[in-house]
Design a protein around this nucleic acid. Sequence first.
DNA 1: TAAATAGTGTCTCTGAGACACTATTCA
DNA 2: TGAATAGTGTCTCAGAGACACTATTTA
Lengths: 232, 232
Amino acid sequence: MGKKDKAAKRTLQDHPRPSVAVDTAVLTVLPPEPAGPGGDRSELAVLQIRRARGHKKGEWSLPGTFLHEGELLSESVARSLREKAGLGDDVVPRQLRVFDRPERDTRGRVLSVAHKVWLPYARLVPVVEAADGALRLVPVGEVGPMPFDHPEIVAAAVDQGRAEYAQAADPGRLLPDSFTLHELWVVHDAVAGHYDSSEDAFRLRAVRLLEPSPEPPRKLDVGRPARLYRRR
Amino acid sequence: MGKKDKAAKRTLQDHPRPSVAVDTAVLTVLPPEPAGPGGDRSELAVLQIRRARGHKKGEWSLPGTFLHEGELLSESVARSLREKAGLGDDVVPRQLRVFDRPERDTRGRVLSVAHKVWLPYARLVPVVEAADGALRLVPVGEVGPMPFDHPEIVAAAVDQGRAEYAQAADPGRLLPDSFTLHELWVVHDAVAGHYDSSEDAFRLRAVRLLEPSPEPPRKLDVGRPARLYRRR
DNA sequence: TAAATAGTGTCTCTGAGACACTATTCA
DNA sequence: TGAATAGTGTCTCAGAGACACTATTTA
């Protein structure tokens, strides 16, 4: 608030402004069926929230909110996940892109800055259970009808996620600090949508991105115990 | 404009809205020194515009504008380039990301949706000449001080451009319909910032992304004439 | 024929995939 | 010992880079 004349000169003219929202695809990998390290295949899944009253019933959407004054987009994402899903602030949102079709929201002009967040399944379970049916995790191939351009946002999130997992071992930190190669493969296979190559070929590639954990190999129900690795 | 009650229910609440701007890095490749197909190395360059009066003198910025009502972001980019640089509407803007630091613009909260546009040098020459000193093309390594986060936008544009040229022969359509392998290499070498491998290794890689042109080889000043290729 | 440029052939290295083989454990 | 799982060794194939060699033109 310096000298008034200059401040006036440098003030933004009055012009129509769009509302700016953030919508977030929270991605995770579901535990394999049945369970355990000897399990089968997993699925990449996204967090959906039941739409507020006054909307088409039975529809689910992505968690989102309007950008507040002075707020960073990443802070807005964190706040929306806190308010709508009870998640903590330990999320690392990555921006996808702006969705800007003028007709995308019938209430008026709303730009949505779409984001993607990785969270381990174990972080999401208590949150979904506490929501009493207002939240659900759905495989990305089975998201039903969604409002706005939320299906496109999910698709963009999946693309970005796949690109990330093609480059690094576990960029989403979906696994605990140490894990077996099989566990890592289950995650990669799920993220890639089961189009990845064989588990056998994967091992060689993955080891170069990891460092061996000093812990002793983990005993399984049957078979040779599995070495533990860490993210490099 | 349907039934008034429902419309009221579904109207956006009054809340503070940021201004939304677009800023665009127009990228091109300068002609090689001295010139001609036997030329040397080229430079990746960006279009700058002299800042309007009332700002620090000597500073150059990226062309930008505020998003208008009902306008798509891509339309806004095209309009800004038309109004500020006299460029036509035949641009293909690609979004980079939103720059959202609250303090990035001292006039108030302004989100900038940064974009990148490829344009061939020949398209830009008449535009820069007609601007009478208000526009210039500068190698991306030599952009001087720029306002806001424009240096970051240029860096993001260069990154996206490099990623594009690592995947395709000439995604920016910087070359005419048919061109020699040498001309293509000059462009790639400039985009990659001269860190690409040798021209020799490049040829083998590039040919697979091209189809031979039916035109006869182009005669040069000296040496064997060069075959012409087309984008596939 | 020399200089200059375009284009090819060949070698090596590396990484990916396939797949057979070995290692370790439990029942 | 057999079943089940983890891990290794080896072969082949494809792409990248280095580099020498050939091809075509002008002066």
